[in-house]
Design a protein around this nucleic acid. Structure first.
Length: 601
RNA sequence: GUCCCCAUCGUCUAGUCUGGCCCAGGACACCGGCCUUUCACGUCGGCGACGCGGGUUCAAAUCCCGCUGGGGACGCCA
């Protein structure tokens, strides 16, 4: 009788031994169809090579979450995924060692998760979505959730963006136990402040021959990529500098020659990744590039910094977007080079645009600030994010953060990429508005949203001299309180531009607006006047359709100041609505226009 | 192009692991009725999906294989 005792079954015991579900179908014909049977954890651990049944990825959620090396009185359970490293453990240099509390000589590992945003733009709803899942997972297991800023891209990272991200996550009600703003025992939590740590670790890899210096120029790499791509090969570094002797590389580096450090990646064999939801994923090493670890500016790339920090900060579970699956082998390799234990990986499905592509601000508002300014309540947005790819066991759709934490179960994550549907978000928000707020609380919400000194105070200078009675305010400045505005298409039309020219002009404006920093009156004016010139239209005419798109009216408050008050996100959204009203941009146009705009610089 | 991931109503999803309670349940959107001075809310109803083809089985949305489709990755970005 099979091991399922509930029913009579004639199958022999062990017949439940099955290939793992869903994942890796395409490859399972290669060897043992029972995927777990050939995972390296089994063979390296020296146990029998016979296939044995194991929980499927989804079922895994019902097992011990904290199983890396959990101390429970009288029992030590060990992570079945754990593989002894192929290399000797790193020598225990104080700072190189991960923090690990002990009780009677047994390490206690609590669940520690993190969100690690890169401060290179607006706070993204995708960041909030991943943060939410990490938060819930950690909280549910009584663990910690931390925030780390991944600002190793010196060119694109800004403090302004970092502040905005922190502010938005706080607005949503997500809190972290350690982070750049509140500190913690494993800081600093800003990668730009940890360069020495990465360099130290990079040196270690260099010393052990797991990494090498590369002196190739970006030009050579560009050409290489082109050749490879046209030849239909997998693009990737060809290993030229790998052939350099250590002595030569060292002396060239010493002479100050610009170079990067790349990791050594095997050219044969297969990397096995364990994903909490997807089971075993196999990627051939040839598919993995010899990734740059340390850039020529001396700062690490994501891959190095992320692995080093996750280890040093004691991260036990990495919940991140699906887009990272293909670079997971690099991370697996780095952990093994350092001799560190791999955290458990779990790749969440990506949020999608209505056309199913990865959520992008070109096709959908993605900034948390946009949703805040549109008048969505933080708890409604967070709730909505919680029903992306996840559902309550009782299928209830409205739930608070605390309720989500209590009921959270990773195995309830569904893998199909969810489309971010603003209509459903609006419905949910409406429910919060009428079900969760007393009239007094409602008043308070409206006040904190826009009827406050800060926001109204910014509007007043623009309207005070233009109205005769206070009651004129609604007519003149109502658009400041609206999310989107209605306009007449004929009000967009100007002399000297046909419909296509007009659409192009508005699209140029939308693009430029994303680049203008700070988003203030003067730089905006400068940028838009430049665009008018580019389009061959007088500034006065050029600005009119923008004006109409943003305010809904041909006459209103001064444009640049108005834009400043409305903010980037609302401006972008309204501009897009106007463009769509005139006829949405085609892919062809996008390519052509982008080129024309970039050509000007 | 190469590699990887994924696949239930238009959308979010339950059910898939542990095959039978499923000729598939809920929600959004849409359409219609009721309630109502209007609208909204509420309420009742309608429309609407297991991508296709094989296999295993007494039995397949559920397990296996193939195909198709969608997505992601292929940076001195993260």
């Amino acid at each position: 009788m099979c091991s399922d005792g509930r029913r009579r079954c004639l199958r022999p015991a062990g017949s439940r031994c099955r290939p793992r579900t869903r994942s890796g179908r395409s490859r399972s014909g290669r060897s043992c169809p029972h995927r777990i049977g050939r995972s390296s954890s089994t063979s390296r651990a020296g146990s029998t090579s016979r296939c044995r049944p194991r929980e499927t990825p989804r079922a895994a959620g019902r097992f011990d979450e904290t199983r890396r090396a959990v101390y429970t009185p009288g029992r030590l359970s060990v992570n079945p995924h754990y593989r002894p490293a192929t290399l000797r453990p790193v020598r225990p240099l104080g700072r190189l060692r991960a923090p690990q509390p002990f009780v009677r000589g047994v390490p206690i590992v609590t669940v520690r998760t993190r969100i690690a945003p890169s401060p290179t733009g607006d706070p993204h709803v995708g960041t909030a979505y991943v943060a939410l899942f990490n938060y819930c997972f950690a909280r549910q297991h009584g663990g910690q959730f931390l925030l780390r800023i991944e600002d190793t891209d010196q060119v694109r990272s800004t403090r302004e963006s970092e502040d905005a991200i922190l502010k938005s996550l706080k607005w949503l009600g997500l809190t972290w136990d350690e982070g750049p703003d509140i500190g913690g025992p494993h800081g600093p939590y800003r990668q730009s402040e940890r360069s020495a740590i990465y360099r130290e670790h990079c040196d270690l890899l260099l010393e052990r021959g797991h990494a090498f210096r590369c002196f190739c120029t970006p030009q050579r790499l560009d050409e290489l990529r082109k050749v490879q791509q046209s030849g239909g090969q997998t693009a990737g570094y060809d290993g030229l500098c790998r052939g350099l002797s250590v002595a030569e590389a060292q002396s060239r580096a010493l002479e100050g020659e610009s170079h990067v450090v790349r990791m050594v990646v095997p050219r044969t064999g297969t990397c096995t990744i364990n994903d909490r939801l997807r089971g075993t994923i196999e990627i051939d090493w040839v598919q993995v590039d010899m990734q740059v670890l340390l850039k020529s500016d001396g700062l690490p790339t994501y891959h190095l910094a992320n692995v080093v920090d996750d280890h040093l900060m004691g991260i036990t579970h990495v919940l991140r977007g699906e887009e990272w699956i293909s670079s997971a082998p690099k991370h697996v390799l780095l952990y093994s080079y350092f001799g560190w234990e791999m955290p458990e990986l779990c790749h969440l499905p990506l949020l999608r645009n209505p056309d199913k592509s990865k959520l992008s601000k070109r096709k959908n508002p993605t900034s948390i600030v946009y949703y805040e300014r549109m008048g969505y309540l933080a708890e409604a947005l967070l709730n909505y994010l919680g029903m992306m790819a996840w559902s309550m066991p009782d299928e209830r759709e409205k739930f608070s953060l605390d309720e989500m934490v209590k009921a959270f179960d990773l195995s309830r994550v569904s893998l199909g990429g969810p489309v971010f549907d603003q209509a459903k978000l609006s419905w949910l928000n409406a429910r919060y508005l009428r079900e969760n707020l007393t009239p007094e609380q409602f008043v308070e919400r409206v006040r904190t949203w826009a009827l406050n000194t800060e926001y109204l105070g910014a509007v007043v200078p623009l309207v005070q001299s233009r109205i005769e009675r206070l009651s004129d305010l609604g007519g003149l400045a109502g658009f400041f309180l609206q999310g989107t505005v209605e306009f007449r298409v004929e009000d967009l039309v100007i002399k000297g531009l046909d419909q296509e020219g007009l659409r192009r002009a508005l699209q140029f404006t939308a693009w430029r607006l994303d680049e203008v920093t700070p988003f203030k009156s003067e730089p905006l004016g400068l940028a838009l006047r430049q665009l008018a010139e580019l389009c061959g239209v007088k500034a006065k005419d050029f600005l009119r359709p923008i004006f109409v798109a943003l305010t809904g009216k041909p006459v209103s408050t001064p444009l640049f100041e108005t834009m400043t008050v409305l903010g980037r996100d609302l401006c972008r959204a309204r501009l897009r609505l106007a463009i769509e009203a005139l006829g949405p941009m085609t892919a062809k146009e996008e390519k052509k226009w982008r080129k024309e705009l970039d050509g000007v610089g």
